[in-house]
Write a protein that binds this DNA or RNA. Structure first.
Lengths: 223, 223
DNA sequence: ACGGCGGCGATTGTTCCACAACTCTGTGGC
DNA sequence: GCCACAGAGTTGTGGAACAATCGCCGCCGT
């Protein structure tokens, strides 16, 4: 039934583990052991790892295996710099053409429907969907591909922010305003709202990060 | 002895073949045959192909192998859109900080040193070096990584433009002006020069492309 | 003729096994 | 204490085999 290749499914299992926090920063992924856990051969596992490395979710060092990277404040700034570049361009284009993707509207609707005690996953998921829907709608295959690559890292950033990400109603309001500006085809306002939204998220993340950027040691790996 | 892995060297051989035009648009790369040619195992070859697919130099279709993509005008526009986004941001940053990378200066020196009958390779190589030096100097790892990914496609665009890329002195002059604006820390001028430079290149490419892209309107990625 | 139906060869996807190449660690000599 | 070195464990690469899938071609019924 799955038209999905084994390696893709292996990759997505690992991706989920990283984004769920089951594999913490610095965790190593021994090939033998990991391939056994996923019931795939070592070759297939290596292909999946390669893909995740290309996505930026894992790092590879020759003859030393792959490991979950430990994000530094510089990394966060770097990710958000590229993110701003892409999303601001996308939002501007969409606000001008008025070609608002349905998925973005639905994602925002989902956000505003959340109560103020919504869990982390319930908030983050539509948030990510909203942003990627916008970028996808920008009509550039390569822009979308690039964004997809760093969104994995963005999500990974947000994982570390989980305990601090506790104001769903504010997130919903900001996105609603942003979407309104877009459908009103007020490009200048939309871009400005997006910029402050992203800068806020970055600042929030940077403020929450330091404590977690040095607590875990490199040998953490759990089963 | 090079600590270069077998798969990296295989990938770079194939990369060169594509950029040299030895593998034309639409060419297929059968695993058995190609791995035999490169004297590597199929596993290693597949890993190399995977990498080139991630770089955008090859396309992969399940159970149908990989092939050199056929660029459409839409592809060229797409590549240059992302390219503009990245390079304009990088140039602006560098022109503000005044932190001009030595490699960029050397690349431009190389360009101006060329005679008007310089061959295609002699022009394109320092051109690419100049642009990637600027992006590298922007101080963003992910920006540089993204640019490196699409520069492969840029080079692949230029390959198809080879017969039309015949005015080395104009290329040299434009780059010299751009570099001067940067060292003069005139950010606005530098950005403007870069923008027109890139738009020119794109228009030039689009004008030269139709003959080779009209045979197959393509977009094989329809799945 | 025409358009499915099914088999067949070729290519890709995945696995198992083996071994070389390399890193890491701990032990012993100095 | 420091260096060297052997040993264990992990990663990198190769070879062969088999399963899964695609494309093609001929067969057949209408």
């Amino acid at each position: 039934m799955p038209h999905i290749s084994t390696i893709e499914s292996a990759a997505s299992i690992l991706r989920r583990r990283i984004l769920d926090g089951a594999l913490g920063p610095g965790a190593r992924l021994p090939e033998e052991q990991t391939s056994a856990e996923l019931s795939v051969s070592r070759h297939t596992l290596r292909a999946a790892l390669r893909q995740l490395v290309a996505e930026g979710l894992l790092r590879h060092e020759p003859h030393r295996g792959v490991h979950v990277p430990i994000l530094t404040p510089a990394d966060v700034r770097d990710v958000f710099r590229l993110r701003r570049l892409i999303e601001l361009d996308a939002v501007e284009g969409i606000a001008i053409t008025g070609d608002v993707p349905r998925a973005a509207v639905e994602a925002v609707d989902g956000l505003v429907a959340l109560g103020r005690t919504a869990g982390w996953h319930e908030v983050v998921e539509p948030d990510l969907r909203f942003h990627s829907a916008l970028v996808d709608a920008a009509g550039s295959l390569r822009l979308a591909r690039t964004y997809a690559a760093i969104q994995a890292e963005i999500a990974y950033c947000l994982v570390q922010l989980r305990p601090h990400y506790d104001r769903p109603e504010q997130v919903a309001r900001e996105h609603r305003e942003l979407l309104d500006a877009i459908v009103a085809r007020n490009a200048a306002l939309a871009v400005e709202l997006m910029r402050t939204h992203l800068l806020d998220a970055e600042a929030h993340l940077l403020g929450a990060l330091p404590e977690s950027s040095r607590d875990r040691t490199l040998t953490t790996w759990k089963e």
